[in-house]
């Protein structure tokens, strides 16, 4: 198992509350290095309700400080109806500032999404259920976990073989590892996807589905994040398990990622602008381990 270096433990807000602590606002800590790959991660956001709008405003505010170049979505982009009005109120209006700034979104489909969202140009899916693209030295795979058929698995394996990048990141809707009480881990998907991820050196995976934020302890060398609280939220739904490295389930959140050389920096930010988790993941092969910089360091709580 990959050794893990942790400078501070991460916590769910449940654990924090038990300690009578509150989150401490933290300034932006990403390194903002020149020529790095910077993007935001959102998931389960398409409610069209106030929390989605407020989090989207926070994203736009953060972009002034940390200019990220694109956004990836881990699905449930548009809940409920699928009319032009729904796309307006659940996507185009909340993210107007980002869209007006020319920030592209690269979407995946969640279980609440209609398959023909793949033809909606601002989602950059080009009519495809699953697809790949490259940014700098990072190869991204956007997968459809609603329908993980042999054709998709074969395509994924072939594309992973030819990744040709220092970093390989996969993202999709259903979390392979999750401590969310409502859904939890998608174990059958894990059986078919994890062997490919391990064999072909995927370093980081983003998913949603459970409406919480969670960073999972590295599993077989891979760091898994759940960011399913960028609009929908199941407050108090994160059950701290042996998987949990850090988590947050008291408010909506999004993630900022910066990849610079052999390091991936992450920072998870709440609707009120508080950093609830952050850290750096060295590229496997360069060094190993995850160093986390929790907003609540240097306190520590046992991970149960």
């Amino acid at each position: 198992m990959m050794p893990v270096t942790r400078r501070a433990a991460g916590f769910s807000s449940v654990a924090l509350a038990a300690l009578g602590l509150s989150l401490i606002a933290q300034e932006l800590t990403l390194p903002l290095k020149p020529n790095s790959v910077r993007f935001a991660v959102i998931g389960d956001m398409g409610t069209g309700e106030k929390p989605q709008y407020e989090l989207a405003e926070e994203m736009a505010r953060y972009r002034q400080k940390a200019p990220f170049d694109f956004v990836i979505t881990v699905g449930d982009n548009i809940y409920g109806g699928d009319s032009p009005g729904d796309y307006k109120t659940k996507f185009e209006r909340p993210y107007k500032a980002l869209l007006d700034a020319g920030i592209p979104f690269y979407a995946t489909l969640g279980n609440h999404d209609k398959p023909n969202q793949r033809f909606y140009k601002p989602f950059n899916m080009n009519g495809l259920q699953y697809y790949t693209y490259k940014k700098g030295d990072v190869r991204f795979f956007a997968l459809d976990t609603n329908y993980m058929n042999p054709a998709q698995l074969a395509w994924l394996e072939k594309e992973l073989q030819n990744s040709g990048s220092s970093w390989t990141i996969c993202y999709f809707h259903h979390a392979l590892y999750s401590s969310g009480a409502f859904h939890g881990s998608s174990t059958e998907l894990r059986l078919v996807l994890e062997p490919l991820f391990v064999r072909y050196g995927v370093q980081v995976v983003f998913a949603g589905h459970d409406h919480v934020y969670e960073r999972v302890k590295p599993q077989k060398g891979i760091t898994y994040f759940t960011e399913g609280a960028s609009g929908a939220l199941r407050s108090g739904n994160l059950r701290k398990t042996l998987l949990t490295a850090a988590g947050y389930d008291r408010d909506c959140s999004f993630m900022l990622i910066e990849i610079a050389g052999d390091e991936l920096y992450f920072q998870t930010i709440s609707r009120t602008g508080q950093t609830v988790d952050s850290g750096v993941i060295p590229r496997v092969g360069a060094t190993s381990g995850v160093a986390s910089r929790s907003a609540i360091s240097p306190l520590a709580v046992d991970v149960r």
Binding site: D82, N111, H112, N149, L191
Partner: peptide, 20 residues
């Protein structure tokens, strides 16, 4: 039906049925 969330079709089942 469009008003109920999609159910993930089990990948192991998909590997046993004729591919579409």
């Amino acid at each position: 039906p469009e008003d109920i969330p999609l159910t993930t079709t089990p990948p192991t089942l998909l590997s046993k049925l004729p591919q579409l």
